[in-house]
Amino acid sequence: MRILLTAAFIGAMAVPAAADYTIMAPAAPGGGWDQTARTMQAVLRDEGIAESVQVVNVPGAGGTIGLAQFVNQARSNPEQLIVGGYVMVGAIETNNSPVNLEMVTPIARLTGEQLAVVVPAASEIETMDNLVARLRENPGAVAWAGGSAGGADHILAGLIAQAADVDPTLINYIAFSGGGEALAAILGGQVTAGISGYSEFASQVEAGELRVLALSGEEPVEGVDAPTLRDAGLDVALENWRMVLAGPDLTEEQVAAITADMEAMATSDSWQEALAARGWVDRFLTGEELEQQLAEDIAATQAILRDIGLVQ
């Protein structure tokens, strides 16, 4: 037993020691941010960009708990990174978070994923128009399944209602705690429609269990037989992106060094392979363009959260 343990231990120790980056995933193991952080860990190490990378999970409240800890711990420390994304923007608003993204240093946007609006294959609803018609008739009769209240899925449901001239405070949104649970409710026909990242639905769509009514992005996705919401006549576009941020009070040189590392990571073959395996789209963006994009998203999110009634 002891020999084995030692063997296993030495096997794992093959990873060199000195810590280069500690990446905080402000979510429980298994979620999108956790997977992003662990994929970064693997790629940074395998490509020799960093010698050792640790992942820390600080779950809860759309990432705001992790962010609050991060702001304190990572001050002037160029070895600490945190993964975040669109959901965090919304969560900062709905939770009245004492910290926000302006208190940290955005490094790079990494990936993006379109959301999909789906119905079970057996549903009478064939198109987005059918769904909108039902929504206009009686918003309460359309039960939407998705992730937690105030998240990207909920925001998209609100935006769709708004674009269809339905009062967004009247949507009947049912929150589920994990992607799997929401998907089960949709497949089982417990709800009218579901919203989530397209990759979560992909295999069900291929198998003909679900029908995609529309995708949320600006462009249609190759191989998916569904229009964008714009093409379906609703003026809505939303992408659930993920990014990496560093701590407050870093020097310009430090920020440049981290950015260079992230760029090396994002352009590597193993990163591209990992993205393909997970169905994520490369949305690498840094510098001023990133900041501009971020500011726009924050303003738009604040507006819709007020309209849905989640933020006063």
């Binding site: 298994g30 994990g178 799997g180 089960a184 497949l187 992909a202 069900q204 291929e206």
Partner: peptide, 30 residues
């Protein structure tokens, strides 16, 4: 539900799903 539908119903299952993808498997009805 994980193997037959690709449904990760627990946190552990979600990680297993990620592991499958690493092995080149796409859990789901097929």
């Amino acid at each position: 539900p994980l193997l037959t539908l690709g449904l990760p119903t627990t946190a552990t299952a979600a990680i297993i799903l990620a592991a499958f993808q690493q092995f080149g498997l796409q859990p789901g009805p097929l």
